[in-house]
């Protein structure tokens, strides 16, 4: 079986089988958060892992996606589901418009430009209180899908619904990302990751491809933001904040940014960690900082590839 099938199979099994081990409804909530973060991080895999570009501002797109679901139903009368698509379109358009000049930059310069972009979005969300109700956040209408399910006879709790819905979104997102990996575009992206100049000499339109990766990852982040807002039925500007951008990059790199599955495990670990650490609330920041540093120092390719390599090493 190909990596693609294995990855999708593992993800599907995780989504379907995990509930058998859930002692309480609360775990559905954590699981669905993991899937939503996993979806956003899959976008980061395309941007960082495939194309080799960095962004410290992708939370901005998550913010756009989330606020689209809060605002479009009220002001435009759109269904929340359509609002999420509108948010994705806006995020994609913004990424396209800003990406062209920004993606000429490299390394730290690209980092600071994307960081600026993310901070600007979060500032607008926090300060335009007439529209967004400011830093305290705004409520988001119900998606209504669970009611439809109930109508056709499937009766599950809200937490369960969102668990499976986010899980489905993650599997679809992973499927698209994995297809992209093997497509001509994916190959070209990996080629420019290796060396931009070499990629250019074999006729790859480097600027256009980087822009594509940036737009796609922005759409992923936006949809993840929408899902988060819809299941919480509430959103605050913090979702677009700098720390959330950092979280997204860290999740991706922690697990192993080269693979969808690795990044998913990164998302799972960093999402679960704060829930586990509530016992040591005082030490939460210290532990988070330590985990970030230690993983990057001792497992540069990320957790999953490093562990796999260690296992293979033993086999020999």
């Amino acid at each position: 079986m190909t990596t693609k099938r294995v990855t999708l199979l593992i993800l599907a099994i995780i989504v379907i089988a995990s509930p058998f081990f859930f002692p309480s409804n609360f775990y559905y909530r954590v699981g669905s958060l993991i899937f939503v973060n996993g979806l956003a991080v899959t976008g980061m895999v395309i941007l960082i892992g495939y194309a080799g570009q960095i962004s410290l501002g992708h939370a901005g797109f998550a913010g756009i996606g989330g606020y689209a679901c809060a605002l479009a139903p009220v002001h435009l009368g759109l269904h929340p589901g359509l609002a999420a698509i509108l948010g994705a379109a806006i995020s994609g358009a913004l990424a396209w418009a800003v990406g062209r000049p920004i993606l000429r930059l490299k390394g730290y310069y690209l980092a600071v430009a994307t960081l600026g972009l993310g901070i600007l979005v979060s500032m607008v969300l926090a300060n335009e209180a007439w529209l967004t109700r400011g830093p305290d956040g705004i409520e988001v209408p119900d998606l209504g899908l669970n009611d439809v399910l109930e109508f056709v006879g499937i009766d599950i709790s809200n937490a369960q619904f969102w668990y499976f819905f986010s899980g489905l979104a993650l599997v679809i997102g992973a499927w698209i990302a994995l297809n992209l990996y093997d497509s001509p575009t994916g190959r070209a992206l990996r080629a420019l990751h290796g060396s931009e100049i070499a990629a250019r000499t074999v006729g790859i339109d480097v600027a256009r491809l980087k822009l594509q990766a940036f737009v796609i990852s922005a759409v992923y982040a936006s949809i993840a933001g929408s899902l988060l807002a819809l299941q919480n039925k509430f959103i605050t500007p913090e979702v677009a904040g700098f720390m959330h951008s950092i979280e997204m990059v860290t999740m991706a790199v922690l697990g192993g940014v080269g693979s969808v599955l690795g990044a998913f495990f990164g998302a799972a670990i960093l999402t679960t960690l704060p829930q586990v650490l509530t016992v040591f609330q005082e030490y939460e920041q210290i532990l988070l900082g330590l985990v970030m540093m230690l993983c990057m120092i001792f497992m540069r390719e990320g957790l999953l590839p490093s562990i796999l390599r260690a296992l293979r090493g033993k086999d020999k």
Partner: peptide, 28 residues
């Protein structure tokens, strides 16, 4: 020093991790 030669993304995460760590220690 232990992370010499690591890619830019890793170095960014290491120093941000350090920043979060120092903050945590400071509030304690």
């Amino acid at each position: 020093e232990p992370a010499r030669g690591a890619p830019v993304v890793s170095l960014i995460i290491i120093t941000i991790g350090a920043s979060i760590f120092i903050q945590g220690v400071a509030q304690l």
